[in-house]
Design a protein around this nucleic acid. Sequence first.
DNA 1: TTGTTTGTTGACCAAAAAGTCAACAAAGTA
DNA 2: TACTTTGTTGACTTTTTGGTCAACAAACAA
Lengths: 231, 231
Amino acid sequence: MGRTSNADQRLMDAALSLIWERSYGAITVDDICRKAEVKKGSFYYFFDSKADLAVAALDRYWREQKPLWDSQFSPTIEPMQRIRAHCDAVYRQQVAIKERTGRVLGCPFCTLGSEICKQDEAIRAKICEILSNKTKYWESAINDAQKEGLAAPGNSAEKARCAMAYFEGLLAQARLHNNAETLASLGDRVCEHMLASRDSSPGKPSSPSAPTSVETTAPPVESEEFDPTKY
Amino acid sequence: MGRTSNADQRLMDAALSLIWERSYGAITVDDICRKAEVKKGSFYYFFDSKADLAVAALDRYWREQKPLWDSQFSPTIEPMQRIRAHCDAVYRQQVAIKERTGRVLGCPFCTLGSEICKQDEAIRAKICEILSNKTKYWESAINDAQKEGLAAPGNSAEKARCAMAYFEGLLAQARLHNNAETLASLGDRVCEHMLASRDSSPGKPSSPSAPTSVETTAPPVESEEFDPTKY
DNA sequence: TTGTTTGTTGACCAAAAAGTCAACAAAGTA
DNA sequence: TACTTTGTTGACTTTTTGGTCAACAAACAA
């Protein structure tokens, strides 16, 4: 066997919380080691780099959260109630986080995803994978709600994608303004949105373009030379 | 008078485009100088730090964009058409950006705001200021639409905030997945959202809590010690 | 032409960051 | 007990980054 350790787990915990609170680019390997109370030598014993650790930390966090999602989105619960309860839980989570850290932190996956989507493909792919899993819970609830006439008809995958965009947009706003109270009505707003939104492409029965697919076409040329601001 | 220069403007342009394409934390002063073709000595002649430059760059970009917004949201245009045209323009902009850079970049203000909201108060405040300006255009269009019965009644400031959250959420999603085509229906979705969404607080005629106000209460204690992941 | 103001440059320094490694320590095992 | 595996440590090197500065250059004014 040999010596045992949980230093790798302490590193993942520290990395996730620092990334969530600050940002990926703002923290260093030393910061993570300090918070985890692990020496740098041990860091490189377990992980190749900060990016490598980040992927592991995200994966671990999602695996930790999954049972909660399974219970919140249990088929034994009324479909719209699943989403409402989830939103309420997220609201309470953000309030609690603010009480401890002084800050509303929003969604770590979306915040980090926006930050590094160009920088690190492994992290981006992991975030897409997790978000795609989350979407399945929403989609399933919407399907069930539609069968009972509790949600507007239409492509449920598209509806889930849009509802989550709305949900995540409100979370990002709360983070920026450091205001959790705008999330008090999160469940109301999101449920209302799904009740109302018609399908944007009513003629098409099945979606021709997979919405979760990743379109990572190569840049046309060295992107260093281009200037996105010229529009 | 003395020698003239546009190095400060080249620096602002370079900074904005690098931040937009990559992220704030991923770029260095040297990166910015290289792209702007300015030596580091000149950088520090004009700006105190990367954060200082970022604030100036954001301000400059918004002042450049404002005339476009004024024309898109002109009162001479049908209120819902203003929002639709704006969404369409953003869609086309993102397509064009992807063609040149190989990437859908989303909204620089929201991406950066999410990244640095805890890190740099000056940048955060500037972003809030700009976003608050943007909200005014949406709010005014919604007010006019409500007068004509083209949008659901209710607190227009709240409605503008939520519509923008939805809009920005879809943009962030497009950035993460590097897929501009999900934005093709941006205008449809956003307009439908505003047509449908009732007021979340129907009893209250005026909003008691200002939604744009920034709630920056001090952290309860050294936030270094806390762990947001324990929820 | 001299002087003043404004901007430019490259060499330089200091600090911070990443990354390496030989020696050591703890656990189980033959 | 000796051996093997697994993990820890702190001192170390290298690289990157931020930041400074004296000397120089261009523009205009007296």
